[in-house]
Design a protein around this nucleic acid. Structure first.
Lengths: 152, 152
DNA sequence: TTCATTTAGTGGCATATGCCACTATCTTGA
DNA sequence: TCAAGATAGTGGCATATGCCACTAAATGAA
């Protein structure tokens, strides 16, 4: 196969996913910029908000994110006073997370912008398509890629 | 609306996209680990390979990636001797990129692993579904979110 | 030709994410 | 009860990505 006829990156599921994520991330970030939050941060604040003072591990699990990555991502939000953590009294290994009052205010502000971005996306991409896409992405996130171990 | 009944993050197109990207990225990275390349690096090497000594701007455009981000991402690959750059003789602003011989060898090695990951993904997710997903993602990447300027 | 404008990249700074080694806690089995 | 093993997070290091200010080079208009 000559190099000139090689298929592009459109064949790689992972590459396409990342590429679309960059595109959409830029758009959502753009719209959210006035709040001073990135879309990822807004999403994280929201996840904390809807959780019941969730443990870090629980947040990481629902976002399918490495626990240490979550810790890093949380740092600027704690530094800026939007989030605070406290040890679970029943198990001091567990660190729980909650929004501060300012965090709640900031989340409200960010959610307004999020709605704008979300609406604009669905206007452009189509509401049905967006819904199907989210379902497909949720499905992927739930897949199990482990090879079944040889049954004993 | 009570906090307990708030919808989860499954409603945000961007959050779902990032979440799926983390999941799939972890899987592809896992499979590619023996090559010492991350999936992103393999994708970048491939993109350089199929291009005709592409300019940095051209690569960034096809990957929908910030030009400076591409520059950063390229650094470890240059440091490890897989990629080299040279100024375009006709326009010295332009910097072109190509694989070194070792880069080509490494890409071959990585592509073998990529095929395994890709195959496994399509086994688990379904070949048809994967194809539809890639098409949907490509569609999103091509969208234009700009609000139409008020017609003069 | 000359200077303003546009184009292509770079470098610095900041967030996003992951892996690994290590610490602090719980849990459990002897 | 106590030591081995499992759990939850942290910190360090590395890559992934973006924005902004700045430089170099080409283009275009006066």
């Amino acid at each position: 196969m000559s190099k000139d006829t090689l298929p592009g990156l459109t064949l790689c599921n992972n590459a396409m996913l990342r590429r679309a994520a960059r595109k959409l991330g830029q758009f959502y970030d753009d719209v959210m910029a006035p709040s001073g939050l990135k879309a990822t941060q807004q999403g994280l604040l929201y996840q904390i908000h809807i959780g019941n003072e969730p443990a870090m591990g629980a947040i990481a699990a629902s976002l399918i994110m490495d626990l240490s990555a979550l810790g890093h991502t949380l740092k600027p939000l704690i530094r800026d006073g939007y989030v605070e953590t406290f040890a679970d009294p029943d198990d001091r290994r567990i660190k729980r997370v909650r929004l501060t009052p300012q965090g709640l205010v900031k989340l409200d502000e960010a959610m307004k912008l999020w709605h704008i971005a979300q609406q604009r996306f669905e206007d452009v991409a189509g509401k049905e398509q967006a819904e199907r896409l989210r379902a497909a992405l949720d499905h992927i996130a739930a897949l199990d890629f482990d090879l079944p171990p040889a049954a004993p």
